[in-house]
Amino acid sequence: MKPTWDIFCAVVDNYGDIGVTWRLARQLVAEHDLAVRLWVDDLQAFVRLCPQADAGAAQQWQQGVEIRHWPATWPGAEPAQVVIGAFACQLPDGYVEAMLRQPTPPLWLNLDYLSAEDWVEGCHGLPSPQANGLRKFFFFPGFTDKTGGLLREASLLPRCQALRQAPGEREQFLGGLGVQPEEGARLISLFAYENPQLGNWLDALAAAAHPSHLLVPQGRILGDLGTWLGEAELPVGTLHRRGALTVQVLPFVSQDDYDRLLWSCDFNAVRGEDSFVRAQWAGAPMLWHIYIQEENAHWEKLEAFLALYRQGLSPAAGHALSALWRAWNMDQPMGQAWTALQPHWEELREHARQWQAAQAARPDLATRLVQFYRNSL
């Protein structure tokens, strides 16, 4: 019998939470031969990532994963051998009670948010004592050997390399999205939360000597883009040219196609956690829009990652990169920061490739989860 795993996902950040858990569930099934149920409270968000799914189904199978709707009233279910509560979501009371009744209590893991902060290494893998006696542990994704690693399917980097090296592969993918950039244009993807600095950045791109083609999948940043363009609505396929900048609105694509989009671009602006990690695997310069927290608590996480990521960069390039990320996340002039980044472009490209290789040398998140489970037996 295959080991059974339950993953619970409460959708908070639109597509970040479900994005991570859906990738994880698929990998556990495909690469580790596990029986995985993914419990999701918002199937509409899931369908955006997996278009063939049924938003009205209480139970369905997609790519080997059993997808279950997690309703407000718990329907009852036999607990799995491993139970993952993603991002500190609260498991149903009825499910926890059923866990207590098992002859062998399940291994209960709290899969936490990704962070480069120093304290994460000390907390990763620690037990979280439960008054009811169940075994629960903290599991932190991360960027160092003392954390849980990053999501990375075995085929991810070979597929990325194949798209970039196979003749016409990149052009064929982009053509399927209706994208035909002018020769020599820098291709930029933009997936972000609302940001008042967008217009300032776009002004700099439009005034630049080098042409840019900005690809914007449907999402929350479209309101700010429409303000800059003077358009109330921006349907899929919208194409505008202003100065050296071409702006194009893309559909919200599946996870696999979003990966291909990142691989096809020269620079990727991403947000949250899921697209942030996928941009790192793309091995290209990037810009992170971190999820906003009260009292600007997210700034500490931003600075912690910058401190780690910029290691190996020259002081000038590291300063320029940090200035750009801070401008985007702290409402500072983006145009000035973007212009100051340009002299360091080639160094940042090489650094992104080196970072990708260094992270790929470490075990991935799914593998480390499975190892943690086996060590607990």
Rank of each mutant, 00 (worst) to 15 (best):
L114H: 08
V120N: 00
T104N: 14
P105K: 07
H124R: 00
N132A: 11
D112T: 06
A131I: 12
S115M: 07
L126T: 14
L134A: 07
L134V: 09
L109S: 02
W108C: 11
A131D: 15
M99S: 09
C123K: 04
L114S: 04
P105D: 09
L107E: 05
L109G: 06
R101H: 15
E121K: 03
Q102A: 15
E117L: 01
T104M: 11
G122T: 05
P129M: 08
A131M: 12
V120H: 00
Q130A: 11
W119I: 07
R135G: 10
R101G: 14
L109C: 00
D112G: 03
D112C: 03
G133Q: 10
L126I: 09
L134K: 08
L109E: 05
P127W: 04
E117A: 10
L107R: 03
G122P: 02
P103V: 13
C123T: 08
R101L: 15
A116S: 12
N132H: 10
G125W: 00
A116L: 00
R135M: 07
P105M: 09
R135S: 10
N110R: 03
S128F: 01
E121H: 00
N132K: 07
L111G: 02
L100R: 15
S128L: 13
D112F: 02
A131H: 11
A98F: 09
P103F: 10
W119K: 05
A116T: 06
P106V: 08
S128P: 09
S128R: 03
R135K: 09
D112E: 15
L111A: 01
W108M: 07
L100V: 14
E117D: 13
D118K: 06
G125P: 02
D112K: 07
A131C: 10
Y113S: 12
Q130L: 14
G122M: 00
P127T: 13
W108D: 06
E117Y: 01
L111E: 05
G133F: 08
W119Y: 09
G122F: 09
A98R: 11
W108Q: 07
L126N: 11
V120T: 04
W108R: 03
C123P: 06
E117S: 05
G122V: 03
A116N: 04
W119T: 04
M99Q: 13
S115P: 02
L107C: 08
P103C: 14
L126P: 06
L134W: 04
W108P: 04
R135N: 06
A98P: 13
P129Y: 08
L100W: 04
L111P: 04
Q102V: 12
W119F: 11
P106E: 06
H124G: 05
G125E: 01
N110Q: 11
L100Y: 10
C123A: 13
Q102E: 15
G125H: 01
S128I: 15
M99L: 13
Q130M: 13
W119N: 03
V120L: 02
P127R: 06
N110H: 03
E117G: 01
L109W: 00
A131L: 12
S128G: 06
D118F: 03
S115W: 00
P129K: 08
D112P: 05
Q130T: 11
Y113F: 11
L111Q: 05
H124K: 01
L107K: 01
T104G: 12
Q102W: 08
